[in-house]
Design a protein around this nucleic acid. Structure first.
Length: 588
RNA sequence: GGGGGCGUGGCGAAGCUGGUUAUCGCGCCGGCCUGUCAAGCCGGAAGCCGCGGGUUCAAGUCCCGUCGCUCCCGCCA
């Protein structure tokens, strides 16, 4: 190897290097044998360089070249020369030159590949994950991993320049079973006791504020034992941030600056700041989602007034039950078939709507569907909903939230059908003023909508207990293109207020002590007002890379079952290991 | 926990209302070829159609079950 170590990479030779003797190390990406002459595309992380084995090469060299197969790892010594004018390849950066091989060393051989190493592998994900090391060799994966690296460095650079300290918090922590299910780790030295893997560094970062660290961040791995999705894995990475002596506007400003910097550094893309702000109620009412996709309009509209005056009994009874009727106008969709409409209805039903009513808009008035119940109000409805002849009005009536979200799903579906979603656009917005509590119908109690350490908005604090459902929190999400990118809040720093919150969510003093005692204790010692936010790194990279799953931007992801197909975790362990941990497996 | 989709040589797919020997592209093996860059041409090998059961004269195709993957609802403070 000593005299076959690379002197250049496969991406950096140019015409100016003409005549140089170089050594390249890399993988056989493609090889084309013309009998006399042979070409090898040699690949490394930096690019591809064409190697030529000339017809008049020594036999030993020709034999070595003959041997080469896909993905052999080789070293090539040779001379850089310009390609003949008509043979230049303008599609590759090194396309003006080639390296005339003088010596080829096979460093290692490669079995027949399970799939080709390609820009866009057509192998199914299952296989790509099993052979992730091969999958990661493709330029498209290398690009995404590089992007991730760039983003992480941009984050560190920006936050360091803004006086943040990067501080690590423990991975083995106390289980605080509220919210997501914890991953548990048995404690060998304490039979029957367990650590938990953090769902986020939440409590620790608050404690760091109490310690006076002022501005903290961490690229933190977070673990949640819940079902995975395209944008959810059992473990994911957050850019965890917390600050003292701030209001939400300060946090917004830091995040906007940070994201600007990230997009500029990693994508050379100028983000427009400040980001829009939308209150949770408005987001639900207009977009039918708390993570609205602002890349297209298609606003939801209120139909209560018309429903009240019309004769459609189903909607009347919705109103009597204090429900809401929402409408969406699908432009030019009056020609939709029954089938198309029923597909939209299926979408609404997935989100709990009992059905999707419709009316077609004509020059004369309204037609089809439930239009006969509204014939006398046709003009008023057309004006009120801003509907034009040829449009299709879709309606969902239900409880407010369900009506909004089910029609919100229809909105997204319509946008795709009508091709309204522009790619390469980043529409950011802050969603603010979330409710602090949500009623849990199953357990008949109030629970924290975000987490229990969120500050209620000032004006609600006094009478919080009277109607917890009305209380808005100092809570905010950062959303981009319909993806929830970050979630944060101003935290409670007053132990008394914290106790009132615990009480509303039905936590006894003892239970609060048992679970969060250390935080409550810490809050006694001069805690600063503080707040923070935690953007999800995987989702951010996913958006930046134009992917629709975070699995595409994680080097070694798990599948939707939480299984790592490459190392085959989770796996069974030896009885000996279990014994040491004082654990017995109960098989059902 | 629930619903939708998928599973066919190593890989990606086709295979209609059941009917000869399961098709195509890539890869693999052998041969030809001095300018390709997804090289080309000729020849060849390779399949228990995820698995189990059923219906039928006959099942890749229909039915039931099961496993795996995936999308979605629930869940995800």
């Amino acid at each position: 190897m000593e005299n076959m170590k690379r002197t250049v990479t496969c991406g950096n030779l140019r015409l100016a290097d003409n005549g140089k003797i170089v050594v390249l190390n890399g993988w056989v990406h493609r090889h084309r044998d013309h009998g006399g002459i042979k070409f090898i595309d040699l690949r490394d992380r930096y690019g591809i360089t064409q190697i030529v084995v000339d017809a008049d090469s020594p036999d030993k060299l020709k034999a070595a070249a003959q041997d080469l197969k896909f993905e052999y790892c080789i070293a090539v010594k040779g001379k850089v020369r310009p390609r003949p004018e008509s043979m230049k390849n303008t599609r590759m950066p090194t396309g003006e030159i080639e390296v005339q091989a003088e010596d080829i060393d096979i460093l290692s051989r490669c079995d027949v590949l399970p799939f080709m190493i390609d820009e866009k592998s057509d192998a199914r994900e299952e296989l790509r994950f099993k052979y992730r090391y091969l999958d990661l060799r493709s330029f498209s994966m290398q690009r995404k991993i590089k992007l991730r690296h760039e983003v992480v460095f941009a984050v560190r650079g920006y936050l360091k320049d803004h006086d943040f300290y990067e501080i690590e918090t423990p991975t083995l922590i106390k289980s605080t079973p509220e919210g997501a299910r914890d991953f548990l780790v048995p404690a060998r030295l304490f039979p029957g006791r367990f650590y938990a893997l953090p769902q986020s560094p939440q409590l620790f970062k608050q404690i760091l504020m109490i310690s006076g660290f002022d501005k903290y961040f961490q690229i933190a791995r977070c673990f949640r034992d819940e079902d995975a999705r395209g944008d959810r894995q059992p473990e994911h990475t957050q850019i965890d941030i917390e600050m003292s002596f701030v209001s939400k506007d300060d946090i917004f400003a830091v995040l906007e600056g940070l994201f600007c910097h990230i997009f500029k550094e990693a994508l050379s893309f100028e983000l427009k700041i400040p980001f829009k702000r939308i209150a949770y109620n408005d987001a639900m009412n207009r977009y039918g989602s708390d993570k609205p996709d602002l890349r297209f309009q298609l606003y939801l509209k209120d139909f209560n007034e018309f429903a009240d005056e019309g004769d459609f009994k189903v909607f009347k009874s919705v109103l009597e039950n204090k429900g809401t009727i929402k409408a969406i106008v699908a432009p030019g969709c009056g020609s939709f078939s029954r089938k198309q409409i029923s597909e939209l209805e299926e979408t609404a039903k997935i989100y709990g709507a009992s059905g999707l009513a419709w009316m077609k808009v004509t020059e004369e008035g309204l037609e089809g569907g439930i239009s006969k119940f509204y014939s006398s109000q046709a003009d008023k409805i057309k004006t009120g909903l801003d509907a034009k002849p040829g449009d299709l009005i879709l309606l969902a009536g239900s409880g407010w939230k369900k009506a909004c979200t089910s029609l919100g799903a229809v909105r997204i579906k319509l946008a795709h059908i009508l091709n309204l979603v522009s790619p390469d656009v980043f529409e950011f917005c802050w969603v603010t003023d979330f409710p602090l509590f949500e009623w849990n119908e199953d357990e008949k109690r109030w629970e924290a909508a975000h987490h229990m350490f969120t500050m209620p908005q000032e004006q609600y604090i006094k009478d919080m207990e009277k109607d917890p459902g009305k209380v808005k929190g100092d809570l905010y999400d950062l959303v981009c293109n319909g993806v929830e990118l970050a979630s944060g809040s101003i935290r409670i720093h007053d132990p008394g207020l914290q106790r009132r919150i615990f009480k509303i969510v039905g936590f006894s003093e003892e239970e609060a002590q048992r679970r969060f005692g250390f935080l409550l204790e810490a809050l006694k010692y001069g805690p600063p007002p503080h707040g923070g936010i935690a953007p999800g790194l995987d989702r951010l990279i996913m958006l930046m890379a134009g992917e629709n799953t975070i699995r595409e931007v994680i080097a070694f992801p798990k599948n939707t079952q939480g299984v790592s197909l490459m190392d085959e975790s989770p796996s069974e362990v030896d009885d000996e290991q279990l014994k040491e941990l004082h654990i017995k497996v109960v098989r059902e």
